[in-house]
């Protein structure tokens, strides 16, 4: 019997073999969700290739379902438990912890990141004094930026601790630490000798460049651990993969201190830019 002869009127023929309706019906038939009478009625109208597909689905399902469960071996289990134990209350145990499955040099990175962040606070505090504090001088805006810069860099320090915590992510580990060091250098060597000027060296995030961040391999500002950035709690999703920090410049030339989060869910990606002052949404772009 040909496929055409096989058709009945219980369901219309599906012009597209990949139509959601056809797939759902075949899936359900393979899963055995119908009672016998319904199953008979529905399958009576199927083509040979559809029957074949149902059988194929069942065979593959059975093969996969029979796969024995996977388990960690004793060493792996012990290492995992140790890792969590090291995370202990207050996260005080993190700094000395190293993943048993290999992350050489992490402690050095942590020390570097912590030292950089500590020095940065000192330098920025110094610049704050040199800039006249919060007095109403022309430097007031820059001073405010300096304060923002302190906020910006502090996550880098925390990130360095988290680096060991999230030991597997070498990309994410190295980038914030490097960023912290670069920012420190820029503040230590201000162009005009005033400690404040270097604040302008923070990353600039331009609206015209945001689309680039949706690429698989984004270039541009160095990412931070998003969990350590201001306004992170505004995004409850676990899918925030990168955070960026800097001065936002919209196409309309609006300038704000901002955090930018990249959110990846499955193959979809989006970017949200939030004002660090009040966490309001400045810009959003979906891929």
């Amino acid at each position: 019997m040909s496929d055409e002869e096989n058709m009945n009127t219980d369901h219309p023929p599906f012009p597209d073999p990949d139509s959601p309706e056809r797939i759902e019906m075949l899936f359900d038939l393979a899963a055995g969700v119908y009672d016998d009478a319904t199953f008979e009625r529905l399958t009576a109208g199927l083509t040979d290739s559809e029957r074949h597909e149902i059988e194929e689905q069942r065979v593959v399902h059975t093969l996969l379902a029979e796969a024995p469960p996977i388990a960690m071996d004793d060493l792996e289990r012990a290492a995992l438990r140790d890792a969590i134990r090291s995370a202990g209350p207050g996260r005080g145990g993190l700094l000395g912890f190293r993943m048993p499955w290999g992350l050489a040099g992490m402690s050095n990175r942590i020390a570097l990141g912590s030292a950089a962040a500590s020095l940065l606070v000192v330098v920025v505090a110094g610049s704050f004094v040199m800039g006249g504090g919060l007095g109403g001088s022309d430097s007031a805006d820059l001073t405010a930026d300096a304060a923002a810069s302190t906020t910006m860099q502090a996550p880098g320090a925390e990130e360095s601790a988290d680096a060991d915590f999230f030991g597997s992510d070498e990309n994410r580990l190295s980038a914030p630490e490097t960023a912290a060091v670069e920012s420190l250098q820029s503040i230590e060597e201000p162009a005009d000798g005033s400690g404040v000027a270097a604040v302008e060296d923070v990353s600039v995030i331009r609206e015209s460049d945001v689309e680039e961040l949706l690429a698989e391999t984004p270039s541009g500002p160095r990412p931070y651990n998003p969990d350590n950035l201001a306004c992170r709690d505004e995004l409850p999703s676990n899918d925030v993969t990168f955070g960026y920090l800097g001065q936002w410049r919209s196409n309309g030339d609006d300038q704000r201190n901002a955090v930018m989060f990249k959110i990846e869910r499955g193959l979809d990606a989006s970017v949200q830019v939030l004002d660090t002052a009040d966490c309001s949404l400045l810009f959003e772009l979906d891929k």
Binding site: E55, R58, L64
Partner: peptide, 21 residues
């Protein structure tokens, strides 16, 4: 989910050599 599982099984069947036919 149904669609992804269905298509995934279909690819597996194809790659494994058409298990049933």
């Amino acid at each position: 989910v149904k669609s992804r599982v269905f298509r995934g099984r279909r690819i597996l069947a194809s790659n494994l050599g058409n298990l049933s036919n």
